[in-house]
Amino acid sequence: MDFHDIRFPTSLSFGAVGGPERRTEIVTLTNGHEERNTPWQHSRRRYDAGTGLQTLDDIEELISFFEARGGQMAGFRWKDWSDHKSCMPSKVPDFEDQVIGTGDGETTSFQLIKTYVSGAHSYVRPIKKPVLGKVSLGLAGERQVEGTHYSVDTTVGLVTFSDAPMAGTLVSAGFEFDVPVRFDTDRIQSSMSRFRAGEVPDVPVIEVRV
Rank of each mutant, 00 (worst) to 15 (best):
A74K: 14
T155P: 05
G141H: 09
A120D: 12
P89T: 01
E146K: 07
V131E: 07
K85R: 12
W81T: 09
L112Q: 04
I127Y: 03
G141W: 03
S122Y: 01
F110K: 06
S82T: 11
I127L: 13
V124T: 15
S151V: 15
D80P: 10
K114I: 06
R125S: 10
R77P: 01
K128C: 00
Y150K: 06
E106S: 15
Y123M: 15
Y116L: 11
F76C: 00
K79R: 13
D83W: 13
E146D: 03
T102F: 15
V135Y: 01
I113T: 14
A140G: 15
R77G: 02
H149V: 06
W81D: 00
D104K: 12
D153Y: 13
G75T: 01
M88A: 15
D104W: 01
I127Q: 09
M88V: 09
H121Q: 14
T107E: 04
K85Q: 09
S151K: 11
G105N: 03
P89S: 11
D104N: 15
T107R: 15
L158M: 12
D80I: 05
D97P: 00
G75R: 14
G157P: 05
E142W: 01
P93K: 01
R143N: 00
D104L: 03
S90K: 14
Y150D: 03
W81Y: 10
F76P: 08
F95K: 05
V135H: 01
L132K: 15
A140E: 12
L112D: 07
G133I: 00
Q111M: 13
P89E: 05
V124F: 02
D94C: 09
K85E: 06
S86A: 05
K114L: 10
T148F: 03
G105Y: 07
K129L: 11
G138T: 08
D80E: 13
E146F: 07
K114Y: 05
